[in-house]
Design a protein around this nucleic acid. Structure first.
Lengths: 146, 146
DNA sequence: AGGGGTAGTTCGTCCTACGAATTGTCAGGC
DNA sequence: GCCTGACAATTCGTAGGACGAACTACCCCT
């Protein structure tokens, strides 16, 4: 059990990172884009979702902003706070990266029968839910709700 | 499916990293120790298993060696090559880290019935095998065979 | 108006990862 | 025996990632 989970994690990481790399992203930047596909978030919210310290986030957003993918917008209701949102370019890149990554991850399970794939999705879904994993990756079809 | 896999990967990463941290390790150093629990390997072999460039490995082994966990031994049959092996201290730390990490990962699935856990292990095991994931984490019970 | 808590940034430090260039060694052909 | 191509590993420079501690600016409550 444990070994299977750890190794599949290793596998998924590698696939994710390689896909990101081909779009000129790091894993972390790709993850940031994927989170922001749903809606803009504040720095602190992002830190909580991604499990990063505030200071780590500043840098990540800096670099991603420098690449023109993301934008710091002032929060209208709180002048301390920021809303981090995708730029047009970031939005387009995120969509491509997301689609390609989905395809590649999906491909990892092509050795399984359809019923088995469904079973796996269900079981993993439950584990994820039981452990309250933040939505770092949308369900395909789960669109932006803003 | 895809989202469940990616999110469970995120979860496992976080648990692994936190466990490592508590033993004074980074994820990568922890991974290195786990791989070496099975047997010593050469730098190139490690690079292939972990999916790292040679130059990345030099640094990782440097830092881990500096902490006294790992040792570069000359390869008796090839004086270009090295065998990277756990030191006594590294071996002990690896065992503790491994056990603790196993426990924590196992814990992620306590929301599942035993039969479901077995099913999940089986399905993930097949995915891992189909995709030829290197043995970056032993099956509990799979001991060193040297 | 004062003061505790919150949002983000800055700074210094260390780890991670890569590619290109380099050194030493092995082994096969001649 | 020697040369040459392939291979093992390191070095160097660069860039990103992550953290904690210290700091600024602002919110809100009283």
């Amino acid at each position: 059990m444990v070994a299977a989970l750890v190794r599949s994690t290793f596998l998924t990481n590698a696939v994710y990172a390689e896909s990101a790399r081909e779009y000129g992203l790091t894993s972390q930047q790709g993850q940031l884009l994927c989170v922001l596909m749903a809606q803009p978030y504040g720095m602190s919210e992002l830190g909580a979702m991604l499990g990063l310290a505030k200071s780590s986030l500043t840098g990540l957003v800096d670099r991603t902003e420098r690449n023109g993918l993301v934008q710091r917008r002032p929060d209208p209701h709180d002048s301390r706070a920021l809303r981090i949102a995708l730029t047009r370019k970031g939005s387009e890149l995120a969509a491509e990266f997301y689609a390609e990554t989905c395809a590649r991850i999906e491909n990892l399970t092509t050795g399984l029968a359809v019923a088995d794939r469904d079973a796996l999705a269900d079981l993993l879904g439950r584990v994820v839910q039981d452990n309250k994993v933040p939505v770092v990756f949308l369900e395909p079809g789960e669109g932006a709700h803003s």
